[in-house]
Amino acid sequence: AVSDRLIGRKSVVMEAISPQNSGLVKVDGETWRATSGTVLDVGEEVSVKAIEGVKLVVEKLE
């Protein structure tokens, strides 16, 4: 599936994300709604860990 190619990809937070609120990330020039178990600020680099419905699950790059 097209979405499977996103797992493991680097992306950049475009709208802040917290455990309570989804935000936005940009992956390969496309904007996606995303969630995370931690707070992520605009501009942080993250990695796509999973896809749940139409949202990406991301975490901060170490």
Rank of each mutant, 00 (worst) to 15 (best):
Gly23Tyr: 08
Val57His: 07
Lys60Pro: 12
Glu59Ala: 10
Ile7Ala: 04
Leu56Ser: 03
Lys10Ile: 14
Ile17Asn: 02
Ala1Asn: 13
Met14Lys: 06
Glu15Asn: 05
Asp28Ser: 05
Ser11Pro: 04
Asn21Gln: 14
Glu45Leu: 14
Glu44Thr: 12
Val42Ala: 07
Ser22Ile: 13
Lys60Arg: 14
Val27Met: 08
Ile17Tyr: 02
Gly29Gln: 07
Val46His: 01
Lys49Arg: 11
Arg9Lys: 13
Leu24Asp: 02
Glu52Gly: 04
Val13His: 02
Ile51Gly: 03
Arg5Val: 07
Asp4His: 14
Val25Trp: 00
Val12Met: 08
Ser18Cys: 08
Asp41Met: 13
Asp41Lys: 12
Ser47Asp: 06
Val12Gln: 06
Ile51Tyr: 06
Thr38Ser: 14
Val27Arg: 00
Val57Ile: 10
Lys55Met: 15
Arg33Ile: 15
Ala1Leu: 12
Asp28Gly: 08
Ala34Gly: 07
Asp4Leu: 09
Glu45Cys: 15
Val54Lys: 13
Asp41Tyr: 13
Arg33Thr: 14
Ser11Tyr: 03
Val25Ser: 02
Ile17Gln: 02
Trp32Phe: 14
Val12Leu: 09
Lys26Thr: 11
Asp41Val: 11
Gln20Asp: 11
Glu59Val: 10
Leu24Pro: 01
Leu40Pro: 01
Val2Arg: 12
Met14Val: 15
Ala34Arg: 00
Val13Arg: 00
Glu15Asp: 06
Leu6Asp: 04
Ile51Gln: 06
Val42Gln: 06
Leu40Glu: 03
Ser22Arg: 04
Leu40Val: 07
Lys49Leu: 12
Val13Phe: 00
Ala34Leu: 00
Val2Gly: 12
Ile51Pro: 00
Asp41Glu: 14
Leu24His: 06
Val57Leu: 08
Glu15Tyr: 03
Val54Pro: 10
Thr35His: 05
Ala50His: 07
Leu6Tyr: 05
Ser3Asn: 12
Ser22His: 10
Ile7Glu: 03
Arg33Glu: 15
Glu15Arg: 05
Asp4Gly: 11
Ser11Trp: 00
Thr38Leu: 08
Arg33Asn: 11
Asp41Gly: 12
Ile7Pro: 03
Gly8Cys: 07
Val42Arg: 06
Gly53Lys: 04
Lys60Thr: 06
Gln20Phe: 10
Val42Trp: 02
Arg5Ala: 10
Val39Tyr: 15
Val57Gly: 02
Leu6Gly: 01
Asp4Ser: 13
Pro19Trp: 00
Val13Trp: 00
Arg9Pro: 03
Ser18Gln: 05
Ile7Trp: 00
Gln20Lys: 10
Glu62Thr: 12
Lys49Asn: 06
Leu40Thr: 03
Lys55Phe: 15
Val57Met: 06
Arg5Lys: 10
Thr38Lys: 07
Asp4Asn: 13
Leu40Arg: 00
Ala16Asn: 06
Lys26Ser: 13
Leu24Tyr: 11
Ala16Val: 09
Gln20Ser: 12
Met14Thr: 11
Asp4Cys: 14
Val39Cys: 14
Val27Gly: 01
Gly29Met: 05
Thr35Arg: 03
Leu56Lys: 03
Lys55Arg: 14
Val2Cys: 13
Arg9Ser: 07
Gly23Arg: 01
Glu44Cys: 09
Gly53Pro: 03
Glu45Met: 13
Gly8Lys: 03
Val39Ala: 12
Ser22Gln: 09
Thr35Gly: 06
